[in-house]
């Protein structure tokens, strides 16, 4: 718990930012920028909301941001191989793709879990991202 007692509608709103993320991850793997745009729009919409809601939409946003970087690299690499012929399909490339898919999946289930818990008013803190969120979101 963060301290404040969130009311029911707040829980739903906070949870929705994770739902937004889940949708974003599903679409965002093929089109990385979707991750960020979707969560960022939601984050903007929640700016005036309570601390609980703001905190959770920020945590969702930050964890999306890291996916954006990893997914973009995967796309850039694919582009290099397909169209520029800079390199062949290598072990490194396949390993990177698998790692990125695994990370996206992990993020997907973590976000799913967060959405359901936060909806019940229970706080979920992601490793590292929650600490980062603390420094960005002030009461």
């Amino acid at each position: 718990m963060i301290g404040e007692n969130p009311n029911i509608s707040d829980c739903e709103r906070a949870s929705n930012s994770y739902i937004m993320s889940i949708v974003a991850i599903a679409i965002g793997l093929p089109i990385p920028i979707i991750n960020l745009v979707a969560t960022f729009i939601f984050f903007l919409a929640q700016r005036k909301a309570s601390y609980f809601v703001r905190w959770h939409s920020m945590q969702a946003l930050l964890s999306q941001l890291s996916l954006l970087i990893l997914n973009s690299r995967a796309w850039y690499w694919t582009y290099d191989i397909m169209f520029r012929g800079e390199e062949a399909v290598s072990n490194e490339y396949i390993a990177y793709l698998i790692a990125v898919v695994l990370i996206n999946l992990t993020e997907f289930f973590a976000t799913l879990y967060a959405a359901s818990k936060v909806r019940q008013g229970i706080d979920v803190r992601f490793w590292f991202f929650s600490d980062l969120t603390d420094t960005f979101v002030k009461k």
Binding site: V89, N91, I94, A95, A99, L102
Partner: peptide
């Protein structure tokens, strides 16, 4: 994340596929 990537790199994917 880097360790996972390094580990995956050791698998002979191109051979398998």
């Amino acid at each position: 994340i880097f360790a996972v990537y390094q580990g995956l790199k050791e698998v002979p994917w191109t051979k398998w596929f």
